[in-house]
Simulated assay, not measured.
Amino acid sequence: MTITDPAQWEDLFTRTVDEQPVQFVRPADTDRPVWAVYEAAVYVGSVAAETDGGRPLWRVQDSREAHRDLDDAIRSLRRPSSWTREREQVAAWARRLLADETLLAIDVETTGLENAYAVQIAAVDRAGTVVFNEYVQPNAPVEPAAVAVHGITLDRLAQAPAFAELLPCLTDVFHGRVAVAYKMDFDRGVIERELHRHHGDAAAADEWLGRVRWEDAMVPYAVWRGLWSVKRGAYRNQPLGGPHDAVADARLLIAKFEQMAATPSTSPW
């Protein structure tokens, strides 16, 4: 469907979501932009389109949950029955981390996506206070695609310290702390690459990294959102949505934790 006004959409149409066809049927007793949703001839729920002058907002009628993307509304209808329990587990995990005084949210901006080096490293505490924020001379080219994302050029880094100069302060800030990142294996991997280049020794890098407790927020946040991909057989990962400044993204991650932690429990106990 390419018509932007849902009121003009057909009474009956099919849309493929994650490589699986979904049938939409408008009830015969209404001309409102409301459709019953079927998969393999089985009713899975209803969605309604609400317009506000821009893209339509798709509301799942049973839960009143709203999505800008119709595909996401369908993914919410596909949630497994275990989602409520899993979401509460994520909320409890977020509350435990926010209660930990050693918590740091970290973000690393890099020279690229593959074998990247750091151009900015930032860490904020659970209150969002900056405890580390430094631009880093990468001694490596910065890919144009990376500059287009974060805007950090080699000219901007001309007077920035190298990672080796920052390592003593970084060690004081990180060691003995819980470091949480969004897609932790990427950020941790960048620091590991920097340590390996500095020490020339994988064992020394592993020893440094082992003095930090690492936590990843991407998968838990995907579970918390609960948008099920039948193609992947898992909850769909979500973009963090930050401005690609390391401090701002780290603070946004703390805000995501607060959002997850505030989830009310539905347990009868």
Rank of each mutant, 00 (worst) to 15 (best):
M1W: 13
T4K: 14
A7R: 11
T16R: 10
Q23I: 12
R26K: 13
P27N: 12
T30H: 11
D31V: 09
R32E: 15
A36H: 15
Y38K: 00
V42Y: 11
V44H: 12
S46I: 03
V47R: 05
G53T: 04
G54L: 13
L57H: 09
V60E: 15
V60M: 08
E65V: 09
D69K: 09
D71G: 09
P80C: 05
S81T: 14
R85F: 09
A91Q: 03
L97C: 10
L98A: 02
A99I: 08
D100S: 04
E101S: 15
L104E: 09
A105S: 14
T110M: 07
T111R: 00
T111M: 05
E114A: 10
F132W: 05
E134V: 01
Y135E: 14
A140M: 11
P144M: 06
A145N: 12
A146K: 08
T153W: 07
L154C: 01
R156S: 11
R156N: 10
A158R: 14
Q159P: 03
P161I: 03
A162L: 02
E165Q: 14
L166K: 03
L166C: 05
H175Q: 15
A179C: 15
Y182W: 07
F186E: 08
D187V: 00
R188E: 14
R188K: 15
V190M: 06
R193I: 00
R193W: 01
D201M: 04
A204V: 03
E207H: 06
W208A: 00
L209T: 05
G210V: 02
R213T: 15
M218P: 03
G233V: 01
Y235F: 13
N237F: 10
Q238N: 05
L240Q: 04
G241I: 00
H244I: 05
V247N: 07
L252M: 12
L253G: 08
I254V: 14
I254K: 05
A262I: 02
A262L: 01
T263D: 12
W269M: 09
